[in-house]
Structures are given as C-alpha cells and as structure tokens.
Write a protein that binds this DNA or RNA. Structure first.
Lengths: 216, 216
DNA sequence: TCATAAAATTAGGCATGCCTAATACAATAT
DNA sequence: ATATTGTATTAGGCATGCCTAATTTTATGA
C-alpha cells in the first residue's frame, strides 16, 4: 500500500500558508486556494483530521503539531527546489513556482539534504521567503505589504507572493524583486495605482499587486 | 481534469525496457516488473491500447510509435535526473535509481532542457545507459552480458542494470561500474561462478549477476 | 426575532488504478 | 485427442479524491 502523500502535502501546505492571513482557515478559503470545490475540501479535511494532521472545529481548520511539521517539510522542499532551479539550472525567479510545486512531492529527505548542502544552505527561496531548516525551524517574516507604505516612505522588498505567474512576470519586468530598494512616491486615495520608485525610475502598481509585495 | 500521467509513464517505460528481452512483452512479465498483479496490468494495458499508446495482441504488448516516443521521453527524464543527482548533488551512482523514478514524473520539458544544458548534454546516465536526445533519438546499445565472455577475454563494462539497489551496492563495492575494464579469468561449466579480474583484483560473480552487466 | 444570505456538509456519483477469486484460453505432454 | 499446466482475462470489490445538487448550519441585518 505504497502511500502517495502528494494530495495530503498539498492541503497541509495550503493550510499553513493561509493560517497567516486567517487563523482557523475556512474550508471555502482553502477550496479557493486549492482550486477545488468546497465539498471536496470538506471531505478531505475530515480525513486529515482522522490522521491527526489537522483540528477541525466550527471556526475552521488548524494544523496539529504533526501537521505543521509536515507542512514545513513540504515548504522546505518547495523552496529548496526553487533555489536549485534558479541557482543550478538557470531558471529566472519568476519561472520556478509551478515547477517546484511538482518537485516538492518527489524529493526524499536525502535529496533535500543534498540540495541544501550543495547550495550552501540557503536561507531563503528566490522570492525572499525563508527556508525552514532541517528540524522545521522557520524564521517568522515580520514585514508589511508595499501597499501600506506612506508617500515618500522607503523600504526594501524582502519577498513576493509567488502564486500568480503573470504577476511575477510583470514585477520581474519592472525590476521589482527581493532585495530591491523601493520608495513610494505618491499614494492614490484607494484602489488607484500606487507609484513606486525603484532605483530612480517610476512605476505604477495597482494596490492589489502592491499588497502582494512585502517590505521590511 | 488535470491529467496525472505517472502510472501511464511507468507502464510505457517498463514495456520499453522489457521489449529488449522479449519482443511482444507478456502481461505477466510486465506485472512482475511493475510489481503488480496480472489482472491490474491486463486492465491498464487495455486502457493504454485505447489511448493508442500500445498494441495488444494475443502474443503480448508492443508500443505504438506514440507510446515509444513517450517512453523515450520518460527514460530521458530518468537518466538526466540521475546525472543531476550524481553530478550536481553528489549522490553515488548506486543510490540514484529510486530517486530518479520519482523525479522522472515531475520534470517539465523546460526543466529537462535545462538539466541537459547545465550538465553539458551528457550522453549517458551514471550506469552507462545512453540518454535519448530531445527528439527521442536513442543510440542502440550493442553490447553483451559479462556472463558471455570467454575465459581470459577482455572488455569494458559499459552499463549495469540499475533496478536492484542491493546488487548495485555490491557491484560498487567490487569496483565494477561503467568504464571499468574487466578480464574474465575462469569460466565455470555452467551455473557456477565467473571469476572476474578488475584492476588487478579477483572477484567471483554468480552468472545471474554477471548477466546484468554488459560489456563492449 | 425572523428572514435572508453565506458557509459547510451530506448524499450520491464518477474515474483511476489497484486487489482477489473465478474462469477462459493456449500450449505442451501423454 | 485429451489432460495438464500455465497464462490471461473477466467479475466484482475497494480506496482515493474529485464532482454536482441538495440540505443544513451559521451569521447578518432589518
């Protein structure tokens, strides 16, 4: 009965990420994130609860310690894969997310160790997110979205939500990537474009886009 | 309906390999190789035939052109993965088969290209098997098993069947690996051990093991 | 408080790919 | 020609994980 854990891993990873925006994660939000229908998620969540990987209350879903630990392992594999793709195979930082989503389920603990070692134990993925260490320790990101910067305020982009490939491509084309210093020039009342100054040039970013970039 | 082709790929790969020893491949042999029960294979083969990937006659199963082409793509991904594992990540040649079995289903055509490019378009996997090129061209291995060498005949080991990890480990411990020059010292009448001389040392190999090592 | 809307679950299906047990088919030896 | 042996398939199930439609539960606002 060779277990195929990839669906389980996918769920736990999603829950882990969504917990940062909404503590007990609602099944509908989870369904949306996984691009599945709500009843499928309801059902699967029940199974995950049965395996002791999540708690399931009326308020929503939370990871148990075991679930959290597994989620962080998957995130580690994901982010290490991304680094392998950029650092060794020459992919651009905006091209690696989907590829890593497949690799993360096919990597053994040994391979995970070897990647980390070969790349000099990198601390972050190419989008700036921290890589959990072998024991699951994960530095908390204390940052705020770009859209919250005031006019003329400055900051360093530390990471970018990598889920939407089109957005990544757009940001990459603007030169907006982790470690770039930005300065907000003007702030539109709301909804309107946010003007961002990167290394002397001016770019307009919608608020929705700007909220997906975090600044230190 | 996001297709998961990994089972299909696994079947085609097995059929491709088994065709070298038995032209129309019997379902029982296929079942044995895939470590499945015969009826499961019967059923799946019917589906593969329905998709135009195999022919299924009374004599057994053959790949169609399309099936062959897909099989070679999978084999390319497998062997490139193995090279990545040894050349970049520092695995030993006897450790990479199982890992590659998982990776081969998670690698996109782009990643395949990048691996090939980054490694300088390697011609063989670490076990000495040729890597099909992008267009599916695959050099035929015209070699014979070590067990067919006469006494005192010499040869170069070009490849080793990599399916059995324990055997690989044993061979690696003897220094028997691709590109090593061997000389057969003695041949027992039949069934008995074959004495092989490698780099000055003498080893006795069972005929069954020797038949899994091919010599040029 | 009660109506309505939104969120979650239950019910009932379906495809995939595996299993065991039973049966059919083929090949060989008597 | 027929019994035996081995190979292959059919029949009937099962687990996983997804779906739609219907229903229940929970929250919200008048």
């Amino acid at each position: 009965m060779e277990a195929d854990n990839s669906r389980t891993e996918e769920y736990l990873e999603s829950i882990y990420k969504l917990q940062e925006e909404q503590h007990p994660v609602s099944t509908s939000r989870l369904a949306e994130h996984l691009k599945l229908q709500a009843p499928s998620v309801s059902e699967m969540v029940k199974k995950l609860a049965g395996k002791g990987l999540v708690f399931h209350s009326e308020k929503g879903v939370c990871l148990t310690d075991e679930g959290k630990s597994l989620a962080k392992k998957v995130i580690r594999r994901h982010r290490l894969s991304e680094r392998l793709l950029t650092d060794v195979l020459g992919f651009k930082w905006d091209e690696v997310h989907d590829e890593a989503c497949r690799l993360e389920h096919a990597i053994s603990p040994e391979m995970e160790d070897r990647i980390a070692e070969s790349l000099g134990n990198p601390k972050t993925c190419p989008h700036g997110h921290p890589i959990p260490d072998r024991d699951g320790k994960l530095i908390k990101e204390k940052v705020k979205p770009l859209s919250e910067l005031k006019a003329r305020e400055k900051g360093i982009i530390v990471n970018v939500f990598e889920e939407d490939p089109k957005m990544l491509k757009y940001l990459a084309s603007l030169g907006l990537m982790p470690d770039v210093c930005v300065k907000v020039e003007e702030v539109a009342p709301f909804g309107g474009p946010l003007i961002v100054c990167v290394a002397g040039s001016r770019y307009a970013l919608g608020r929705e886009v700007a909220s997906k970039i975090k600044v230190k």
